[in-house]
């Protein structure tokens, strides 16, 4: 195997390890659109990173946290629904990001690279980021798991039984921002949400506990990365989209399985 292939595979597997369990919560909590909005905001973060000459991951993290806080502030007014607010915030952030990136032309930003990722250009420092950052994210999720699951099942009940629901939800939002920041370079901001929701959705049919679904989502993610990278090299197609299509294939398989099992 070529070195760049190996690094790409390692990076993709690292991302799948984290997006599997976190993605399950995004599916259970119906936050797919929130994840999408966060990732759109990441382009603004790229521009912010360039503008202030800091690590792009830091720029993304700060922008995404800003977006989450703006959403919380707007939500408290209760005049517009959350999906409308997210639509406003996400597309504004994306547009400002695109404008900023094109105005900063001298920096020669590879826009396509940020939108769709470049998993085969992953370097060793990126791998460190993914594995150390991913381990930290999984640690936080493990610590949060019990409370977040209780809040996901029923917020009123969790709250009545002493779970600090607001803090739990806030930490989870920050966790999503962090994961987008560390995974952006691999699959790009337009496709990152797919790694969060598609493997989790594919795992649902075969799970009877939340923990099982999280583990199977990791497996589905890892298989998607492997198949997608192979297809990408085989047909000389962009790697990020190939991974997403492979994940969608797994989802279709689980869906067909469900139809078949339902008939039997």
């Amino acid at each position: 195997m070529e070195d760049f292939m190996f690094r790409g595979l390692m990076g993709g597997v690292g991302v799948a390890l984290v997006t599997g369990p976190v993605g399950c919560f995004i599916v259970w909590r119906k936050m797919a659109y929130f994840g999408n909005s966060m990732s759109h905001t990441a382009l603004l973060g790229v521009a912010v990173g360039f503008l202030f000459g800091v690590d792009l991951r830091l720029g993304i993290l700060v922008s995404c946290i800003g977006m989450a806080l703006a959403l919380l502030a707007l939500q408290s007014r209760k005049t517009l629904s959350t999906d409308t607010l997210l639509g406003i915030l996400a597309h504004t952030a994306l547009s400002v990001g695109i404008i900023a990136v094109s105005v900063l032309e001298t920096l020669r930003v590879d826009l396509m690279g940020y939108l769709f990722g470049d998993i085969l250009a992953v370097g060793v420092p990126d791998l460190w980021w993914i594995y150390l950052g991913g381990a930290a994210a999984l640690g936080v999720l493990a610590w949060l798991w019990r409370g977040l699951l209780a809040v996901t099942v029923n917020e009123e009940l969790a709250s009545a039984e002493g779970i600090p629901t607001f803090a739990v939800k806030l930490v989870f939002m920050l966790l999503i921002a962090f994961i987008i920041a560390i995974a952006m370079k691999l699959i790009g901001i337009l496709l990152i949400t797919s790694m969060l929701i598609i493997p989790a959705a594919a795992a649902r049919r075969f799970s009877s506990t939340p923990e099982q679904m999280a583990a199977l989502a990791v497996l589905a993610g890892v298989v998607s990365v492997g198949v997608g990278l192979w297809a990408s090299v085989e047909w000389n197609a962009p790697a990020g989209p190939c991974i997403v299509v492979a994940a969608a294939g797994l989802f279709l398989f689980s869906y067909a399985w469900e139809m078949f099992a339902g008939r039997a």
Binding site: L149, A150, V153, N154, E156, S208, T209, P210, M213
Partner: peptide, 20 residues
């Protein structure tokens, strides 16, 4: 009131009893 669990969340009664 109106306790509903989203169908995407695999949850048995056993797991519900152990939630908190």
């Amino acid at each position: 009131q109106a306790f509903e669990v989203d169908p995407s969340l695999p949850l048995t009664v056993r797991r519900l009893l152990c939630l908190t």
